[in-house]
Structures are given as C-alpha cells and as structure tokens.
Lab assay of single mutants.
Amino acid sequence: AVSDRLIGRKGVVMEAISPQNSGLVKVDGETWRATSGTVLDVGEEVSVKAIEGVKLVVEKLE
C-alpha cells in the first residue's frame, strides 16, 4: 500500500495530537490524520510507527 512507505519517515505536527484526540502531521509534503500515545504540540518532529486504517501512529522524535 502507498501508506506503507511512510513507516519510519519523519514528519511535523500540524495540529496538536493527544491520546484522546487525533491531529494532523505532514510527512513528505502530504498531510495525514495521526494518533499518538502522548501529547504532541504543533511544530514537534515525529516519526511514523504504524498505520491504522487511514491514520498514522506517530511518536516524538528523540
């Protein structure tokens, strides 16, 4: 699937994400809805860990 190529890629949070609410991330110039187990603020760099349906699962870049 086209989304599989995104796993491991870096992105930037465009709309804040929390465990309760999905947000938006931009990866390779495309905007995706994303979820995370932690709070991520706009502008934070993330990496794509998995894909669930049409949402990316991301975590903060260390």
Rank of each mutant, 00 (worst) to 15 (best):
R33M: 06
K10A: 07
I17G: 02
N21I: 13
T38A: 13
T35S: 10
T38L: 14
D4E: 13
V27Q: 01
W32Q: 03
L24G: 04
V48I: 10
S47P: 01
S36R: 01
E45F: 14
R33K: 12
Q20G: 14
L24S: 12
V27I: 10
A16Y: 13
V25Y: 00
V46G: 02
A50R: 09
D41P: 10
V13Q: 00
V58G: 01
R5L: 15
V39D: 11
G29W: 09
G29Q: 10
G23S: 01
T38S: 12
E59M: 15
V2C: 08
V54A: 14
Q20Y: 15
L61R: 07
A50W: 08
S22Q: 08
L61G: 06
G11R: 00
E62Q: 14
G23M: 03
V57G: 02
V58F: 01
V27A: 03
E62I: 14
T35V: 13
V13G: 00
D4C: 10
D28P: 01
W32F: 07
I7S: 03
K55T: 15
L6S: 02
K10T: 08
L56P: 01
K60E: 03
L24N: 04
L61S: 08
S22I: 12
Q20I: 14
V46P: 01
V48A: 02
T35L: 15
E45Y: 14
S18Y: 10
R5N: 13
K10D: 06
A16L: 09
L6C: 03
R5H: 08
A34W: 01
G11P: 01
R9I: 04
A34L: 00
E59H: 10
K49H: 08
A16R: 15
T35Q: 09
S47D: 04
D28N: 09
G53A: 05
E45L: 14
G8L: 03
T38N: 08
A34N: 01
V48W: 00
Q20A: 13
G37E: 09
E45M: 13
T35F: 09
V13D: 00
S3D: 14
R33E: 07
V58I: 03
V13A: 03
E44D: 12
G29N: 08
L40D: 01
N21A: 13
G11Q: 00
D4R: 04
R9H: 07
K49L: 15
N21H: 11
E62K: 14
K26G: 07
K26I: 09
A1P: 11
A50M: 07
L56M: 06
K10C: 06
P19E: 06
E44M: 10
A1I: 11
A1L: 11
S22G: 09
D4V: 13
V12N: 06
L56W: 02
G8I: 02
W32N: 02
A50T: 05
V39R: 11
A16K: 15
L24Y: 12
V12I: 10
P19H: 05
V12G: 02
A1N: 07
A1Y: 05
G43I: 02
Q20K: 09
A50F: 06
G29K: 07
V57Q: 05
D4N: 11
I17S: 02
S36Y: 02
W32V: 03
L6T: 03
L40I: 12
M14H: 06
E15L: 15
Q20R: 13
V42K: 08
W32E: 01
L56I: 07
V54T: 14
E52L: 12
A50D: 07
E59L: 12
E59F: 15
S18A: 11
K49G: 03
L40F: 10
V12E: 05
D28Q: 11
E52H: 11
K49V: 13
I51Y: 09
K26H: 10
T31C: 05
V12M: 10
W32G: 01
T31H: 08
R9G: 04
S36I: 01
K60Q: 05
V25P: 00
V48Y: 00
E15V: 11
V46I: 14
E15F: 15
I51D: 02
D41E: 12
V39L: 13
G8N: 06
V25A: 08
A50E: 06
S22F: 15
G23A: 02
S18M: 08
L24C: 07
G8P: 02
G11N: 01
S18D: 09
W32A: 02
V57Y: 13
I7P: 03
I7R: 05
A34D: 00
L24K: 10
E59T: 11
L56N: 00
D4M: 10
V25W: 01
K10V: 09
E62L: 14
E15C: 12
T31R: 05
W32S: 02
A34R: 00
L6R: 04
E44I: 13
V12Q: 08
E44V: 12
T31L: 14
R9N: 05
G37H: 15
G29I: 07
T31Y: 09
D41M: 15
G43N: 12
V57M: 07
E62T: 14
G43W: 08
E59S: 12
K10Y: 10
P19R: 05
E44F: 09
V42G: 04
S18R: 14
S3A: 11
S36P: 02
E30F: 10
D41L: 14
V12A: 06
G11H: 00
T38V: 11
K55D: 13
R5K: 12
T31P: 05
